[in-house]
């Protein structure tokens, strides 16, 4: 073996040390321009959500003299019906929307993966119970439930919003993860691990999860977009009382104030839409990198 690789330098033998996840991710992302664009968009919005709101006062100033002002240096995206800068609203509103969506994704993935893996691995009565709960989650109409819930809960914090979106949204993922676990369960290496006396916890976390991690990572990103649509939808419908402005609230107010009929309000209405589209676009462009990052076979390709 060693003679063979010495004789053919650069032959198919991989490096002796494994590159870190960061190096691997960097390589996978820079391999295609589309992924670089995607990740740039995602990073841009992430930074906006983290640092953007600190640039503005808590209560954005209103200016009755500048209602629906066209774009200018002071207000690059113009102003709204109260004369508030649209750009400022977009930036300050991004934190709630994006953090709630990210939390929703984390909760969805967390509940869905846990339920799916445990159900598919242990089978029997555990599986029966979890799957009945999953069916229940899948059967209840999520969006109307959210509307009902919003009458009793204010969703003031993104955590509450994320948790509710996560709790109502994990059913489909659980089913998919369960079926993947079922097929992995029959594979030789799982049986070998059991035969070697490795614990169930070990088998689930070290043998099964790494094999479904590309799928989970992709779902995590897709759930972010799902989360954005759901919450923006709720705010747009106006079923949730809001304290501060965010993208959904902007859309609601834009429509409520007749933006459809005033051409000056076009930017006010389009800006949050564009942001939502851009985030989705960034996520979709980045998705295919995950398979490469998390699947060792593709990693070396």
């Amino acid at each position: 073996m060693s003679t063979a690789s010495a004789a053919f330098p650069g032959a198919a033998s991989p490096p002796h040390h494994r590159p870190s996840l960061l190096t691997i991710s960097w390589r996978a992302i820079t391999r295609k321009p589309s992924r670089v664009i995607g990740i740039t968009i995602i990073l841009f919005f992430t930074l906006m959500a983290i640092f953007g709101p600190t640039l503005y006062p808590k209560q954005l100033p209103i200016n009755p003299a500048e209602l629906y002002a066209p774009p200018s240096w002071a207000h690059p995206l113009g102003t709204d019906f109260e004369g508030t800068s649209v750009l400022a609203e977009i930036i300050t509103g991004s934190r709630y929307v994006l953090s709630a969506a990210a939390l929703a994704a984390v909760f969805t993935i967390g509940f869905g993966t846990l339920a799916g893996v445990v159900s598919g691995y242990f089978l029997g009565s555990t599986d029966q119970i979890i799957m009945r709960v999953t069916d229940f989650i899948l059967t209840i109409p999520g969006f109307p439930l959210l509307i009902v819930l919003s009458t009793v809960w204010s969703f003031g914090s993104p955590i509450a919003m994320g948790l509710v979106l996560g709790l109502t949204g994990w059913g489909g993922l659980a089913r998919a993860v369960r079926s993947q676990t079922l097929s992995l369960r029959e594979r030789g290496f799982i049986e070998a691990a059991r035969g070697l006396g490795l614990s169930n916890a070990h088998i689930i976390t070290r043998e099964i999860l790494p094999n479904i991690s590309p799928y989970i990572a992709m779902n995590l990103l897709l759930s972010v977009t799902g989360g954005i649509y759901a919450e923006v939808g709720l705010f747009f419908l106006g079923v949730i009382p809001f304290q501060a402005s965010n993208w959904g609230v902007m859309l609601n107010l834009a429509f409520g104030n007749g933006a459809l009929y005033t051409p000056q309000a076009l930017l006010y209405m389009l800006s949050p839409m564009a942001c939502i589209l851009l985030v989705t676009f960034g996520i979709v462009l980045t998705l295919d990198a995950f398979d490469e990052i998390l699947n060792p076979r593709l990693r070396e390709g």
């Binding site: 494994r18 594979r187 030789g188 070998a192 998390l294 699947n295």
Partner: peptide, 9 residues
């Protein structure tokens, strides 16, 4: 081929 976990070193 099936006896080894493809995702782990």
């Amino acid at each position: 081929y099936g006896a080894l976990n493809p995702a782990r070193p």
